[in-house]
Amino acid sequence: MNTRVASAILLASSIGLAACSKKAPEDLPPPPVETETPTTTPTTPTGPSLGSQAHFENAVNGQNVIYFDTDRYNIDSADAAALQTQAQYLARYPQISITIEGHADERGTREYNLALGERRANAAKNYLVGLGVDAARVRTVSYGKERPIALASNEAAWAQNRRAVSVVVN
């Protein structure tokens, strides 16, 4: 009797499933139309990418470095013009932040030159903030005499090493 019941259940299930199956439509949709995809040539940027140090230096016409007199950290008129150009760049690109690196020449103690480099970097930062740049976008660091750009021990080399350099932070 179990075999007959099982056969009846199997037959009822098969009939139920057959009643649920879909029939193929009489009219099929047309095949997809082939369209030509336009070929595009990849564009390469014509200059340095936004947010890079090269982009910053190009935009400020290389005025990302300001120079100081011996034992001084005041902003003179040439420095002010360079910092105004930097402030305009930072206003145009509010997503970019910078670090101002303060440097000194080789004369003086390490401690004195680190303090002088810090005062130079802070003087540049304060000038930018005075021009409307958000202080949170400008960091400062002092390298003192540890990272000279000119290695000679003469006035020309010392003049190149007494500087504050603005560097883009990624």
Rank of each mutant, 00 (worst) to 15 (best):
M1I: 11
N2I: 12
T3E: 14
R4M: 12
V5N: 07
V5A: 13
V5W: 09
A6P: 01
A8M: 13
A8G: 03
I9A: 13
I9N: 09
L10I: 11
L11D: 03
S13F: 13
S14G: 13
I15F: 11
L17G: 12
A18Q: 10
A18L: 13
A19W: 08
A19V: 11
C20L: 14
K22N: 13
E26Q: 08
D27R: 08
L28S: 13
L28P: 00
L28K: 08
P29N: 06
P29A: 04
P30C: 10
V33F: 05
E36T: 13
T37R: 13
T40A: 10
T41I: 09
P42C: 03
T43D: 10
T43F: 10
P45S: 15
T46H: 02
G47T: 11
G47R: 01
P48L: 05
P48M: 03
S49K: 13
L50Y: 09
L50W: 09
G51T: 06
Q53Y: 06
A54N: 11
V60M: 00
V60E: 02
N61T: 07
N64D: 14
I66M: 10
F68L: 00
T70E: 11
D71F: 05
Y73K: 06
Y73A: 13
I75C: 07
D76V: 04
S77A: 15
D79S: 15
D79N: 15
D79L: 04
A80T: 14
A80F: 04
A80V: 08
A87Q: 09
A87C: 05
Y89Q: 01
L90H: 06
R92N: 15
Y93K: 04
P94N: 07
P94H: 06
P94T: 04
Q95T: 13
Q95R: 05
Q95F: 06
I96M: 01
I96A: 00
I96N: 00
T99R: 14
I100D: 03
I100S: 00
I100K: 04
E101I: 08
E101L: 11
E101H: 10
H103M: 09
A104Y: 03
A104T: 01
T109F: 07
E111W: 03
A115Y: 01
G117L: 02
G117V: 06
G117Q: 10
E118L: 14
R120G: 03
A121N: 08
N126M: 01
V129A: 06
G130E: 05
L131S: 04
V133Y: 09
D134R: 05
A135D: 09
A135E: 14
A135T: 12
A136D: 03
A136Q: 02
A136M: 02
V138N: 05
V141S: 13
V141H: 07
S142H: 04
G144I: 02
K145T: 05
E146L: 14
R147F: 12
I149K: 09
A150G: 06
L151V: 12
L151F: 15
A152E: 15
S153L: 13
N154Q: 08
N154F: 03
A157D: 04
Q160P: 04
Q160W: 00
N161S: 09
N161D: 15
R162C: 03
A164W: 07
A164L: 08
V165C: 02
V168F: 01
V168L: 02
V169K: 07
V169I: 06
N170Q: 13
